[in-house]
Amino acid sequence: MALPAYASPLERVWYYSFRTICGLIFFFLIAPIVIIIPLSFNAVPFFTFTPEMLSLDPAGYSLKWYEDFFTNLNWQGAVRNSVIIAFFATILSTALGTVAALGLSRPDMPFKTTIMALLISPMIVPLIISAAGMYFFYTSIGLASTHLGVILAHTALGTPFVVITVTATLVGFDNSLVRAGLMCGATPQRVFFKVIMPLILPGVISGALFAFVTSFDEVVVVLLVGSFEQRTIPWQMFSGIREQISPTILAVATLLVSVSICLLISVEWLRRRGERLRGITAT
């Protein structure tokens, strides 16, 4: 909506002030994420800009917090745990969620709304409630403070995202393709892998990314169900902020921002590819 040539002065003022307001809101959204990047190269153990940093003196900057992150055993253990837990939770929730979404999208699925509500519920129920319930139950069956317990919990939290994204891709799915495949003599397995899978793949992958992020970013369940042995990166950050603030947290945060940029790019790319494949052009 470019400003038309016949706009009155009042409209002109409003047009520019509206843009300025929007600019400020975008600044509010992005500034907190950008600001930690220079702070993580701080030479002193505070969360603040030192005079040396502001005068761009190289002595004000250092890589020691990154060095600490890559050498500190606590952080290395946290990275390992995060990757292991997120990996298995993603695989499990993607497999379970995709199969369930295929069932839900069939026209003759009984009790569809009720089942959908149940499957989505881990996303709606606040984490603290899920975590408390899991803590009570997992303690009683010996799953608390085990990697398996945290993986199962994260799988449960990740499945709604997979169900939602895969169901969304299946909305425009043409079932005659399946029938055509079967008529041409393919086995149902072959039809699944050669016909259905390539078409729903963008949904499956973006669901898997959501599940991965959910697990990778989750801390409440790890705090309650897990223990120090299951510490993940967010767990380490959470206890780090509570106990002793060290800019290593900012270094980790900067690294995590780069991870999220990669995730954002892949999800956006998948979304556009999916839209293109289904014939919905973005432009």
Binding site: V99, A100, G103, L104, P110, S121, S130, G133, F137, L152
Partner: peptide
């Protein structure tokens, strides 16, 4: 109908064990 339900069943059973039952316990 049964076929569609069987596809959903694994996830439903999984969530029942890892999520819904714990809420019930609470």
């Amino acid at each position: 109908k049964i076929r569609a339900f069987l596809l959903v069943l694994p996830l439903l059973a999984f969530l029942g064990f890892t999520f819904l039952w714990p809420i019930g316990v609470m």
